[in-house]
Measured scan of single mutants.
Amino acid sequence: MAAGGDHGSPDSYRSPLASRYASPEMCFVFSDRYKFRTWRQLWLWLAEAEQTLGLPITDEQIQEMKSNLENIDFKMAAEEEKRLRHDVMAHVHTFGHCCPKAAGIIHLGATSCYVGDNTDLIILRNALDLLLPKLARVISRLADFAKERASLPTLGFTHFQPAQLTTVGKRCCLWIQDLCMDLQNLKRVRDDLRFRGVKGTTGTQASFLQLFEGDDHKVEQLDKMVTEKAGFKRAFIITGQTYTRKVDIEVLSVLASLGASVHKICTDIRLLANLKEMEEPFEKQQIGSSAMPYKRNPMRSERCCSLARHLMTLVMDPLQTASVQWFERTLDDSANRRICLAEAFLTADTILNTLQNISEGLVVYPKVIERRIRQELPFMATENIIMAMVKAGGSRQDCHEKIRVLSQQAASVVKQEGGDNDLIERIQVDAYFSPIHSQLDHLLDPSSFTGRASQQVQRFLEEEVYPLLKPYESVMKVKAELCL
Rank of each mutant, 00 (worst) to 15 (best):
L152I: 09
R20V: 01
A410H: 07
I106Q: 05
Y294R: 02
D215V: 13
F212N: 04
M299H: 14
T158C: 00
R171Q: 00
A291T: 03
R245N: 01
T202M: 07
H107K: 00
P366K: 08
V168T: 08
M292V: 02
K477E: 13
C305H: 05
M389C: 08
S9A: 11
I62H: 02
V413S: 11
Y34P: 00
M181I: 12
N297T: 02
E220R: 09
S112L: 01
D268F: 05
K134D: 15
Q63W: 10
T354M: 15
T166Y: 02
T58S: 13
A78K: 12
K246E: 03
P467K: 07
M476Y: 15
Q63G: 12
L131M: 15
P471W: 15
D120Y: 08
N68T: 08
K367G: 10
C27E: 15
A146Y: 00
V405T: 15
V368F: 06
F379Y: 07
S334P: 05
H310I: 11
A150M: 08
L46N: 07
T347E: 06
I176G: 03
G104V: 11
D178L: 01
N297F: 00
H107W: 00
L341H: 14
Q375E: 10
R190M: 12
A150P: 02
H310Y: 09
L319T: 00
T321H: 00
V226H: 01
K470V: 10
A3P: 06
A348W: 05
G4Q: 15
Y432W: 07
R234N: 08
F379I: 03
R37G: 10
G419V: 12
S395W: 04
R188H: 11
D87G: 00
Q408G: 14
T52Q: 13
K470D: 14
F28G: 07
N336C: 10
L124K: 11
N297G: 05
T227D: 04
F345Q: 05
C98Q: 14
T119Q: 05
E70R: 13
E462P: 05
D87W: 02
V429L: 15
T321R: 03
A102G: 08
K276C: 02
A143N: 10
F30T: 07
R245L: 03
S359L: 07
L186G: 09
V363T: 05
L69K: 08
L222S: 02
A335I: 03
K233S: 09
I351S: 04
D441Y: 07
V364R: 03
E401T: 07
I72M: 11
D182P: 07
Q177S: 14
D332F: 06
L252Y: 04
K229W: 04
S448N: 15
P366L: 06
F449I: 00
L362R: 05
A150E: 09
